[in-house]
């Protein structure tokens, strides 16, 4: 990543997540490393099964031994090793320093608790506010995330609100304790496009105003393009390309990224323009071969791609996992 050169806020080294399934062991995340600096937004882009959600969930302990997963690698948050913390210390970091917004606010909110109370809960637990102060702060937060009549809404239950409103509430909960890192896991996938636009505007606004770092997980390249500083593309559990957002879209190095961008229909194309589809389908993670996971679908595949797994190579501030990277001009300015 080409952020400032000081210590990153979040530093992940060689993250791995393994599941054991009926069909044998499955490596959902396979040696992913990245750095995230304060105030930056990292978009993690991938399809289902790419490991993007599992990766981030494993960092914050949502995927781990209790869910039958084997987790390895190092996770440094402000220089502290999160994997080495006691459960109590870990909970305190999660409650105050890291906020999380999930895809479906219907399941991430407690259906039988008034939303004002849900927002205030973290403040009471982690910031030591009394109920009155927490309730006051909850109303302020509801106002901040753009919910009209916050006093009345604070007394309502999640089912009394629309999907977009619920996601605003989830964002209010996530930012209540003023975290340094906001993780948004497909935050708008369950929403309509016009609502998605509003929620993404809100997330971006909060991120900038509060100077938080953000990890935005999405399968939608359009969402990542408009909202992130840097992008990490994942495929079959590995990071296959990392670069500044503009460079990814302008000159992708990894053939997968290139093919994905080419396959998207665009409003600027005439009707009935044939899409350049990617042949084949994503690999079965339980039946992994030795070579490049994208190899079987790749136009530029050679014998070497079948024999060896290409490592993530860093050149000029950007990385790609490919023996035959695209683009002849020098790599983007770091």
């Amino acid at each position: 990543m080409n952020g400032p050169s000081n210590t990153p806020l979040l530093s992940v080294r060689n993250a791995q997540v393994n599941f054991s399934t009926a069909r044998g062991p499955l490596r959902a995340v396979d040696g992913v490393s990245f750095d995230l600096h304060a105030g930056r937004t990292l978009g993690i882009v991938g399809e289902s099964g790419s490991g993007k959600s599992v990766l981030v969930r494993s960092l914050i302990g949502l995927v781990g031994e209790s869910s039958g997963a084997g987790v390895a690698g190092q996770v440094l948050f402000e220089g502290r090793d999160l994997r080495g913390l006691s459960p109590r210390e870990f909970r305190s970091v999660l409650g105050t320093e890291i906020g999380i917004v999930f895809q479906d606010p219907m399941t991430s909110l407690n259906p039988v608790m008034k939303i004002g109370r849900q927002i205030g809960e973290g403040l009471r637990l982690n910031r030591g506010l009394d109920s009155k102060a927490a309730a006051r702060r909850a109303v302020e937060l509801l106002n901040e995330v753009g919910i009209p009549e916050p006093e009345r809404r604070a007394q309502q239950y999640p089912h009394e609100m629309s999907g977009g409103m619920r996601q605003r509430v989830a964002i209010a909960i996530a930012i209540a304790c003023a975290p340094k890192l906001l993780i948004a896991d497909e935050p708008t996938t369950a929403l309509d496009v016009t609502v998605q636009r509003q929620i993404l505007d809100l997330l971006q606004g909060e991120q900038r105003q509060r100077g938080m770092a953000m990890i935005l997980i999405t399968h939608d390249l359009g969402v990542a393009a408009g909202r992130s500083d840097d992008i990490m593309v994942m495929y079959a559990g590995r990071a296959v390309e990392t670069a500044a957002t503009r460079e990814i879209f302008r000159s992708p190095r990894m053939p997968y990224t290139e093919a994905l961008l080419r396959s998207l229909p665009r409003l600027s194309d005439a009707t009935h323009t044939r899409l350049s589809a990617i042949p084949g389908r994503p690999p079965d993670l339980a039946r992994r071969s030795g070579g490049c996971a994208f190899g079987p679908r790749c136009l530029y595949r050679t014998e070497r791609c079948d024999a060896e797994q290409p490592p993530l190579t860093m050149v000029g501030g950007r990385g790609y996992a490919c023996f035959h990277p695209r683009g002849t001009e020098p790599g983007g300015a770091a």
Partner: peptide, 20 residues
């Protein structure tokens, strides 16, 4: 929507099938 499929896959993967 493909993300929800991903979540399903994770849930499925984390629940090892009860064997004999």
């Amino acid at each position: 929507m493909s993300a929800s499929a991903a979540k399903g896959a994770v849930v499925a993967a984390t629940q090892p099938r009860r064997r004999w």
